[in-house]
């Protein structure tokens, strides 16, 4: 017998649609503005007349960035860092989150506190820099991957997810004579696709957007990742009193907008792939087995 629904449901549904839609609109507007500016002529930008569509359509902002010849290399560097970094990170993080999610692990509590401790305590840039140097990682793409390879943050997310998995799956594995390796690789990982995907997204995004590590560790022009490359274009444009500035008839604002668009577009293309993992009912089949 169904109970009467009343106001709750319709109101709830309306809000559920409105909230994200409104949020999306107030996000889209400035983004449209930024991309419009990136395609506009410098005089239109400086006059502040660009709103949602380009005025004086002009690709010179983009050619300014893409023509320097270093763009392609920087892009390739970033791709390498993102792919290798994300794979390594997700793998190692999952590999440590799993044991820590097992109550029966002796010394588990110790490790938990250890990771929490390292999450909060850092000695800062100098010791990190010195360490990377001592390890011989200076000016290497690995210096962009290894120092930040595992985040306690992501580890805890995975751990919490593993903890919530039903025990029956593992118990049946042990009954069949398998060990923890079998559990982990054959069952736990496949069942955690959603959580792994979000952690992969976090790592991936961080590897893609980070430029502080590159600023510290990379000295060669051809090892720069994309974000550093773009950042420096903007920073250079801000140098004052420089009478030999290479910024000719391109507006600094326009170039800045172009760099934003260039760094965001890959993200836009990637996320839909990740989203596939966020579909409901992933666990269903496994438990029924």
């Amino acid at each position: 017998m169904k109970k009467p629904r009343g106001f709750k449901d319709p109101a709830y549904v309306i809000v559920s649609y409105l909230f994200p839609i409104i949020l999306a609109i107030i996000i889209l507007i400035p983004f449209l503005n930024v991309s419009a500016k990136s395609f506009s002529s410098s005089s239109a930008i400086v006059s502040g007349s660009v709103f949602f569509h380009p005025i004086g359509f002009d690709l010179s902002n983009y050619s300014y960035i893409l023509d320097t010849g270093l763009f392609g290399k920087a892009f390739a560097n970033s791709v390498f860092v993102v792919i290798v970094g994300t794979l390594l990170s997700v793998m190692t993080t999952a590999m440590v989150a799993y044991p820590l999610s097992k109550k029966e692990l002796k010394c588990g509590k110790f490790f938990n506190y250890l990771y929490l401790f390292t999450m909060v305590f850092t000695a800062g840039m100098i010791p990190d820099y010195l360490l990377v140097r001592k390890l011989g990682l200076s000016d290497s793409l690995w210096s962009l991957i290894l120092p930040g390879m595992i985040w306690t943050y992501n580890m805890l997310i995975l751990k919490s997810y593993f903890e919530a998995l039903p025990q029956e799956v593992e118990e049946s594995v042990f009954v069949d004579g398998g060990g923890y390796f079998c559990c982990f690789f054959n069952f736990v990982l496949p069942l955690s696709k959603a959580s792994l995907a979000s952690v992969a997204l976090f790592y991936g995004v961080s590897y893609w957007t980070d430029y502080t590590k590159a600023m510290l560790y990379i000295t060669s022009q051809d090892k720069k990742p994309l974000q550093l490359f773009l950042y420096e274009i903007i920073a250079q444009g801000a140098v004052s009193g420089d009478m030999s500035s290479s910024f000719t008839l391109v507006s600094a604002e326009g170039v800045k907008c172009a760099t934003i668009v260039l760094s965001i577009v890959p993200m836009l293309l990637v996320y839909p792939f990740i989203q596939r993992f966020f579909t409901a009912g992933m666990l269903l089949g496994a438990v029924k087995e």
Partner: peptide, 15 residues
């Protein structure tokens, strides 16, 4: 594989 690769953490490029 990945772990092995990471052991060969790239060459030092000091000045």
């Amino acid at each position: 594989l990945l772990l092995a690769l990471s052991a060969f953490a790239g060459g030092s490029q000091e000045v």
